[in-house]
Write a protein that binds this DNA or RNA. Structure first.
Ligand SMILES: [Zn+2]
Ligand SMILES: [Zn+2]
Ligand SMILES: [Zn+2]
Ligand SMILES: [Zn+2]
Lengths: 133, 133
DNA sequence: TTATTATTGTTATAATATAACATTTTATAA
DNA sequence: TTATAAAATGTTATATTATAACAATAATAA
């Protein structure tokens, strides 16, 4: 079975591996400085890789932080539905994986006539760790 | 009865009035250029007003656009819960006002141990107008 | 092959946002 | 009222995030 990373180009792979290994969201210029030894020299090279990776759903952008994380939820590979928990204290971020929520939001109509085909949701709060202390 | 705008300082009022009158989300530097005749000269003056206005829930930031809109939903004055429809074609943005959604998300637990005290949701899709054409 | 599309490399620049510091205004309470 | 604290302002400089424009190369498909 073909591994998915084979589908990625060289720069995309380099950027993706870094993001995947990180245990926190990474910012574009931090990514840049970490991949310069791998031959990526300019911001645009990073942004191009990031854009592609988002497009194919392998990473997501945390809009409120301008930072990027690897998708931990196969079901949003389509990159049409993403949701995150963000701890306001320790900045820890985790992706929500809740099929009910996905279903609810994907088919949400509300008061409006909009046909929704994508959404992004960010929950802010206190993670378990930060609550205990 | 006291009008709420009285609570705003001069710069906050100037910035808020501009945003409130606009029928589209405004970006910080566009706000700046539109209030220079009112004596606001520097980006920081705009950002400070914006931050305060967000804090008290009179405006919201559309994170995916780095732009600001007036709140059209009194119930989120507390600035703890916001949701938007964003048309991907005409860029029209409207705030979701749906108490069920608010309730559902405000009390959302999911798989995580996080205690949620705030969220931001952005729906992307096609508005009625753009669907017809 | 040859045309089309995706990817890369590179330099410059645009757009968004904050740091740091000095001053002034407004609110609070002794 | 007057001292004190808190909030808001003014200003310059700078940090951070992101794209424009153009040239070259590699991968894919008709
Ligand atoms: Zn995901
Ligand atoms: Zn935490
Ligand atoms: Zn609102
Ligand atoms: Zn539209």
């Amino acid at each position: 079975m073909k591994q998915k990373n084979e589908l990625l180009s060289k720069n995309q792979q380099v950027v993706f591996e870094l993001i995947e290994k990180a245990n926190e969201p990474l910012k574009a210029y931090s990514i840049l400085s970490n991949v310069q030894k791998k031959g990526i020299k300019a911001p645009l090279q990073v942004y191009r890789a990031l854009n592609k990776l988002m497009e194919i759903g392998k990473i997501h952008k945390i809009e409120s932080k301008n930072a990027f994380v690897a998708c931990t939820n196969n079901s949003c590979k389509i990159s049409k539905a993403s949701a995150f928990y963000i701890c306001e204290t320790c900045e820890d971020i985790s992706e929500v994986n809740d099929s009910k929520l996905t279903k609810y939001l994907s088919s949400f109509k509300g008061n409006n006539d909009m046909k929704v085909n994508k959404y992004n949701l960010e929950f802010f709060g206190l993670c378990k760790n930060c609550r205990v202390r």
